[in-house]
């Protein structure tokens, strides 16, 4: 993917980091049909991994049941302002993308 497919924002407040991320992805379930009645093949993000300070904070396993252009938000402890947080995804067609952001 040429353009960055992830928008991410991480903020720390009283020791707790809140991460919000938006990914651009069609998230096809494989159950929908196009106009000619052909099934649209499944194409969805399967795994999202978030790391900070060399530790894996969260791994998300997704199905096609997650909405198009998925939104993900979560919180964690143990990082401070200026630290980096890295988020990456991989889909069922073997594509992937990742982004790094500074916690502000």
């Amino acid at each position: 993917m040429a353009k960055k497919s992830i928008k991410i924002r991480a903020k720390v407040k009283e020791d707790i980091v809140t991460v919000k991320a938006l990914m651009t992805h069609p998230m096809e379930t494989g159950a929908r049909k196009d106009k000619s009645g052909e099934l649209i093949p499944a194409h969805f993000i399967q795994e999202v991994v978030c790391e900070s300070g060399g530790k894996t904070i969260l791994t998300a396993d997704w199905s096609g049941g997650v909405s198009k252009n998925p939104y993900l938000s979560f919180k964690f402890k143990g990082a401070s302002k200026g630290d980096m947080v890295k988020l990456s995804w991989a889909d069922n067609k073997g594509k992937s993308d990742s982004v790094e952001a500074k916690i502000g």
């Binding site: 707790i16 530790k55 894996t56 904070i57 969260l58 791994t59 998300a60 396993d61 997704w62 199905s63 049941g65 997650v66 909405s67 998925p70 939104y71 993900l72 938000s73 979560f74 919180k75 964690f76 402890k77 143990g78 990082a79």
Partner: peptide, 16 residues
């Protein structure tokens, strides 16, 4: 729909 494995430091909060 989704399953989140919580690593070190992750708090009990997810939103999708």
């Amino acid at each position: 729909v989704a399953s989140y494995n919580m690593g070190e430091g992750a708090l009990g909060f997810v939103s999708t």
